[in-house]
Computed example of a mutant assay.
Amino acid sequence: MNDAMRCLGLIVLLLVAGPAWSQTIVASVEPLAKLLRSLYGPEVEVVTLLQANQNPHQLALSPRQVMQVRDADLLVWVGAGVEAPLAPLVARRDRVSVALLELANVERREGGHADHGHGHDDHDHHDENGAHHNANLDPHLWLSIKNMQLLAEAVASVMPEGLQQGQPGLWRQQAELTLGQLREQLGPYASTDWLSYHQPWGYFSAVVGLAEPLQVSQQLDAGPGSRRFVALAQEIRDRKLHCMIVEPEARAAMLHRLCPECKAVALDPLGRDQPSLNYLPWLNTLADGFQRCLQAGP
């Protein structure tokens, strides 16, 4: 009987000691989750919607993911212009959602150029749900520290409960410090040429001062024709290019055929290979990878 009473007492103690308040934030992609984990304490659970084995360019949500979107206390996503499958689910939510694309002064890269406003071009259209799409929009907005600073402020304003002490101010200061360090680290390689299958790194390379890469294809699912392949191989030789950044969805074998002498560094613009890192430490690993690739020698 004494053992039973002690067991019951332990259960009651655990229940009393457990968190009296908890919330769940669902982030559509891992880099957004990395930021949120930097801001909130342990009583706020941050869940990444996109799983590591899912193709972000052809996203199909499972019933469980649909429920996660529906039930999240806060949903943080890039926006309908990038994540069209999420748009109708978000529209049916009765709780708060924050879309990075909808924030004032967000930096958009369209057609290889940065746009700090909300202007649209001739390639804009809307789908049957009314969601705005731009065929030229670079969807990797999270690779801009400035964009993520805007997101940190927006999220903290709609859900201040559960923030760690001093947030988001402390994170914003750390972000400015990190940005300066990244620019100093990669500054010596500002004019060094590099190769990429397509260009998911525009926000990152622009803010740290790297050159635009020699780009194999505008789209992941469309490789170069034979004539384009020959021209690319010749350009690689002419420019004495020695670095290629290989993302998970890139056609690595084709890159190696184009530049067999290139140093290949695998990096993921979605951070799926670094689930334990928060946002700023993850950016440091990206910078280390670029430096390793761009520097001369083995």
Rank of each mutant, 00 (worst) to 15 (best):
A154S: 13
A156V: 05
P42V: 11
E184F: 08
Q219L: 14
R172Y: 00
Q68P: 06
P85H: 04
H126N: 12
P298M: 09
L220H: 06
W21F: 12
A20H: 14
P224E: 06
G112K: 10
S217W: 05
T178A: 15
Q51C: 07
P160W: 11
L214R: 01
W194A: 09
L36K: 04
R64D: 13
V16M: 15
Q215D: 02
R228N: 09
L137S: 11
A211C: 01
G112T: 09
V230F: 07
R237L: 05
L49H: 00
R228A: 15
A206E: 15
T48S: 10
A87E: 07
A80P: 10
Y279V: 05
Q51H: 13
D73H: 14
L10F: 10
E102I: 01
A253Y: 05
G209K: 12
A253H: 07
L59G: 11
V44I: 14
R239V: 07
R37I: 09
Q65Y: 05
P19Y: 07
Q165Y: 05
E45S: 13
G18E: 09
A135R: 10
M244V: 10
A231D: 08
M159D: 04
L32G: 01
L100D: 00
M159Y: 01
G169L: 04
S276Y: 09
A91M: 12
